[in-house]
Amino acid sequence: MLKDITIGQYLPGNSVIHRLDPRTKILLIVAFLIVLFTVGNFAGYLALALFLFAVNKIAKVPFKMLVKSLKPLLFFVIFTAVINLFLTRGEPIFKWGIITITKEGVRLTIAMSLRLIFLVIGTSLLTYTTSPIVLTDGIESLFRPLSKIGFPAHEIAMMMTIAIRFIPTIIDETDKIMKAQSARGSDFESGSLIHRAKALIPILVPLFVSAFRRADDLATAMECRCYRGGEGRTKLKAIKMKRIDAGAFLISAAVFAVVIVMNWL
């Protein structure tokens, strides 16, 4: 059952979007989010929707996957929608008992729901088209200027790489420990919530012990392979900005500019 957890959501491919430099994608996503929260009218949302649709088409991410990425947020979207719909004051357009729906409420509800949905789709497009390793490289490179003021850019990237690498290993291990404890009569499936939480202790303790042991082994192995921090390290695959990145920046800048300009129309 634990095997079903998907790690990262990368969908391998070779589209233009896949081939973009991770830094380009990260920066554009940040710009996209900023633009998204400045949009003031529905024409703007329409433009951004078309933009997302186009990116999605180019990246060939199945529509199904986008819907799947929205699922975990569905509750959150509905929750904020309900709150906005019923609790926004303004000009009433519908009244029934204590329930009042205002014009402003409807506007706000639609705007907020669209923002959340676009936010999730936008970031999902990033993770669907960028492998975790490349994404880590991108983050490291973007934060490198900050390492001058003591920000541990390389260390954070290395930790992320190792975390990604060890997720399946630790999941396997959890599975094994759960089976071992079940064989000894542990019951994880029934009983009250507290009972079930307590049943997790015999899993977590050995899991932590083994994780620390692994960390120790790994540290020794890394030192034996001459790891001494980010200083003087080179990369097998150095990430490089190419012409398509410039193109992506130009096109996105044009779209975002149009959206911002539309705010005043």
């Binding site: 790489t161 690498r165 290993t169 692994r214 082994d217 192995a221």
Partner: peptide, 14 residues
């Protein structure tokens, strides 16, 4: 160079 017992604990990248 040094190779250890447990391959899982010496592979760094995914």
């Amino acid at each position: 160079g040094m190779v250890f017992q447990n391959p899982d604990n010496q592979i760094i990248a995914s």
